[in-house]
Design a protein around this nucleic acid. Structure first.
Lengths: 187, 187
DNA sequence: GTCTATACCGAGATAGAC
DNA sequence: GTCTATCTCGGTATAGAC
């Protein structure tokens, strides 16, 4: 794999990630992606056999994006601080969330309806954060309540992202993250 | 408009509503809809000029579905009871929610990315419930806290629907609706 | 109003020169 | 490895007979 290889490949993935976030996967064409990445359409197939293969690459990219964020959150000393960092990030992202929804959630939702192998692959986009959040609650000594509490936190953030996006109101995110911060702090 | 007119038209809408719920709007073809409704493909265009027109009809159908539900909830004596009925309905639907997500939310999310006039139209799918919920909190004397509380309730239900769908766990819905019920009761 | 046949186009995918 | 040209199919939409 030469340098140009990875350059073009990663440019294609990056273009796909952004276009799919803005337009959805079904609506985004290979021509769109090729143009955005400044790669000739025919050349796309050297890097990805099918459109679905690009979608898998998008999911992988999102997953490593999550890993990078998680590593940062894990630097915080206590589980509470880690959860607060997670919530804080959502708050900081409220502008983007209002414009296009959650980068993970909207992809997961669409691929769910797409069905097939992509649906299964997409589930990891939720499974990973869920497990990480659950682990924080366990460390806090919440035992078997941890899954329910993780569900509560992740649900609230996903739900408010959806509504903030529909109504184009970044402030909706702020309202919910405020509550969630208080909730975590008071545990 | 003859009897057959409305028969076929409503059959087409019903087929569209169901297929779009299962597969998403972009993925669903006019041929799919025509077949499901047992109407010849070419005849579809007598009732709907474009595919987007069908989508508008789907949104309208969902909106009147909401109105019907709302009328039922409004029969409850107190605002708390009305909200509890709303929450209860979500709980009762948990099987379907785990299979395909929220009928309103998933449509709204997809049409958001589709952009154009459909995105604006779709927003009413959230605006109507939001206003209704907010009105209940106002009647409860929550004043300017009402929008935030409505947001909290609707977010939680939308978020948990998304997660329950991804993980295929109806029970996730039950966990959240339990909390929400307690929250409303304690207000 | 109903339905068949088909036009038209866009999108995914391939062939093959360089 | 790269890129142009093209194939093919499926999907929206139309024409026009009945």
């Amino acid at each position: 794999m030469t340098k140009n290889d990875t350059d073009k490949r990663s440019r294609l993935i990056q273009a796909a990630v952004e276009l799919v976030y803005r337009q959805g996967f079904q609506k985004t064409t290979l021509a769109d992606i090729a143009q955005e990445a400044d790669v000739p359409l025919g050349n796309v197939y050297y890097y990805f056999k099918t459109k679905d293969a690009i979608c898998e690459a998008i999911v992988e990219q999102r997953l490593s994006q999550f890993e990078a964020l998680r590593e940062d959150w894990d630097k915080a000393a206590s589980p509470k601080d880690r959860l607060c960092r997670f919530i804080q990030m959502t708050f900081n992202n409220r502008g983007e969330l209002a414009r296009g929804g959650c980068q993970f959630g909207s992809l997961c939702a669409e691929l769910q309806k797409a069905g097939g192998p992509l649906a299964k692959k997409a589930n990891r986009l939720f499974a990973k954060p869920f497990k990480w959040i659950e682990a924080q609650f366990r460390t806090l000594g919440k035992g078997d309540d941890s899954p329910g509490m993780a569900l509560h936190l992740l649900s609230a953030l996903q739900g408010v992202s959806l509504l903030a996006n529909s109504f184009r109101k970044p402030n909706y995110v702020a309202l919910e993250t405020d509550h969630l911060n208080d909730w975590v702090r008071a545990l």
